[in-house]
Simulated assay, not measured.
Amino acid sequence: MPIKIFIDQGHNPSGTFNSGAEANGVTESEVNYQVGIYLQNLLNSDSRFEARVSRPTPDTVLGTNNTTSLQERVRLANEWPANYFISIHCNSNPDPDINGTEVYIYRTGTQSNWLADAVLNAVTETVGTNDNGVRVNPSLYVLRRTNMHSILIELAYVTNLSDAMKLRDNQYQFANGIYLGIKRYFGFE
């Protein structure tokens, strides 16, 4: 039986509510969408996994506001039910020098923690972003309300020019890094 992984492409499409960060010609929701589709394809081409995404099309809108959008993402994962939940995001910061990749978890010492370590290492190796570490943030709704092991990946910073170019040009590599990290976590690599 394949391992079921739910991929949440954070935020909603441009022009709708909560489309995420935008800077340096890069729109977070568009990057999240495409990285999620690439990751879904990679996982579904591997018979050990079955993957679904929260936004199957570029114009899929989840919910009617921020709260209902988050609730819908969690509901989709919980009702499937997925074994793992991976939320994909891009970061921003008023300081354009801040850059790198980080992964958020609900608490340390868990399977989510080990998955986050493997994914973070593989993404930074594959794409060349700085490793900002695994961070605990129990306030994140998708980590707190999912019924499975969950991580939230901040791929890189749209507000940092170097990171933004990676987000624009290396979306497949980000997905491949996440896929490689998942395989390492399961001992398949």
Results as ranks from 00 to 15, higher is better:
Ser162His: 13
Asn130Glu: 14
Val31Lys: 13
Tyr33Glu: 12
Met148Val: 13
Pro56Val: 08
Asn78Glu: 05
Gly25Tyr: 00
Asp46Gly: 03
Pro138Asn: 01
Pro94Gln: 04
Asp97Met: 06
Glu50Ile: 09
Asp59Gly: 08
Glu125Val: 09
Ala23Ile: 10
Gly100Ile: 02
Gly128Val: 06
Thr129Arg: 00
Arg145Trp: 15
Thr68Tyr: 07
Ser54Gln: 12
Val74Cys: 06
Asn91Gln: 13
Gly109Asn: 08
Phe85Tyr: 15
Trp80Tyr: 11
Leu39Asp: 04
Leu42Ser: 03
Val53Ile: 14
Asn132Arg: 15
Gly36Asp: 12
Glu102Asn: 15
Trp114Arg: 10
Thr110Gln: 14
Thr146Met: 05
Arg48Asp: 12
Glu154Thr: 07
Asn24Thr: 06
Val127Ala: 03
Arg73Trp: 06
Gly25Ala: 00
Val35Pro: 14
Pro56Ser: 04
Val134Cys: 09
Tyr157Gly: 00
Ser150Glu: 04
Arg48Cys: 08
Val136Phe: 03
Leu167Phe: 12
Thr68Lys: 11
Ser139Trp: 11
Gln40Arg: 15
Ala116Val: 09
Thr68Leu: 11
Met148Ser: 07
Met148His: 12
Glu79Ile: 10
Asn93Trp: 03
Leu161Gly: 03
Ser87Asp: 11
Leu115Ser: 00
Thr126Tyr: 00
Thr110Leu: 13
Ala116Trp: 01
Thr57Phe: 13
Asn113Trp: 15
Leu39Met: 04
Gln34Ser: 13
Met165Glu: 15
Ser139Met: 12
Arg75Leu: 06
Asn160Phe: 01
Pro94Tyr: 00
Arg107Tyr: 04
Asn147Lys: 13
